[in-house]
Design a protein around this nucleic acid. Structure first.
Length: 270
DNA sequence: AATCATGTCAACCGCAGTGCG
DNA sequence: CCGCACTGCGGTTGACATGAT
């Protein structure tokens, strides 16, 4: 494997200032010399152990930093620069299915890094969708209501607890879809597992009308869908599984419609 | 010309998953 | 089975660029 650093000279500098941490490891912006050292070492020895690589390559960096630099910047074949409208469209489509799983999205794209895609999404695409009245998480229209979705982040995969009193019911749906996609892509896609994923959230609604609306929607469940026992849930079944899992029917009912929406995605994916 | 807001890019941090002893 | 080390990922931050006022 031979890698040459091309086009680094003349690139504008946008990194962080360089400093040295308590362990004597250099942090922040990489110099051209460091890049050359890293590339030269990998050219000669390949990638084996990121932890010991910096020492062997004569770099005063941690392995994590080297890995990141290589994957996001120095690795050959990386496509850089502005995203084309076609690429943007592709990102939006992939995000609708995969959620914030940037590495998975990057795998489907043409040599774009996950970091690049994530940056572009957060700085540009997300705002563009919002301006168009599209919820960037659900990719559906933004609907105003008072539904309050409460989740603990232990369940969502992050470290703190949050309660989002959203003006859109879609935040719950977004979380749902993300969980669903995560479960499927990590090959945990048996139906029981997916049911468990979908049962985790606790939802509260302080809007009685919304609850009633949700209940009405729930009665649509099972209305002429395919012969899949997972997709066809009647009112009695919903009540039963909520009781089993100690979830209050009245407060959770609105969420069932989100569950139902997610089954369409599930159907496509399986 | 100065200031502010927004966009862009690069890098860090913390957590989760995985493999191994 | 458990704990540790390593890797990979997503969220976040920092600094500069650019456009608008």
């Amino acid at each position: 494997m031979n890698v040459t650093v091309i086009g680094l000279v003349g690139l504008r500098k946008m990194g962080r200032k360089t400093w040295v941490d308590g362990d004597g490891m250099k942090k922040g912006e990489w110099t051209a010399e460091e890049d050359q050292n890293l590339v030269a070492y990998i050219n000669e020895h390949g990638i084996c152990d990121w932890r010991t690589l910096p020492r062997r390559a004569g770099l005063q960096r941690c392995g994590k930093s080297c890995r990141l630099r290589w994957l996001n910047y120095l690795r050959p074949g990386i496509k850089r620069g502005k995203f084309t409208p076609k690429e943007e469209e592709e990102i939006i489509k992939l995000h609708a299915v995969l959620g914030n799983r940037w590495a998975a999205i990057a795998k489907e794209m043409d040599n774009r890094t996950d970091n690049d895609i994530k940056n572009h999404w957060n700085s540009c695409l997300k705002k563009r969708l919002l301006r168009k009245g599209i919820d960037p998480m659900t990719h559906g229209p933004i609907i105003n209501n008072n539904l309050t979705v409460t989740t603990t982040n232990e369940e969502c995969g992050s470290s703190s607890t949050s309660t989002s009193s959203s003006t859109s019911s879609s935040s719950g749906s977004a979380w749902l879809l993300n969980k669903l996609a995560t479960g499927i892509s990590s090959k945990q896609h048996d139906l029981d597992r997916i049911k468990n994923i979908l049962l985790v959230p606790r939802i509260t609604s302080n809007d009685q009308d919304e609850q009633e609306e949700g209940l009405k929607r729930d009665h649509k469940i099972g209305g002429g869908e395919e012969n899949d026992d997972f997709l066809i849930w009647d009112d009695e079944e919903i009540r039963r599984f909520m009781e089993t899992d100690e979830i209050e029917y009245e407060t959770t009912a609105p969420y069932v419609s989100l569950f139902y929406e997610s089954t369409h995605i599930l159907d496509d994916l399986l």
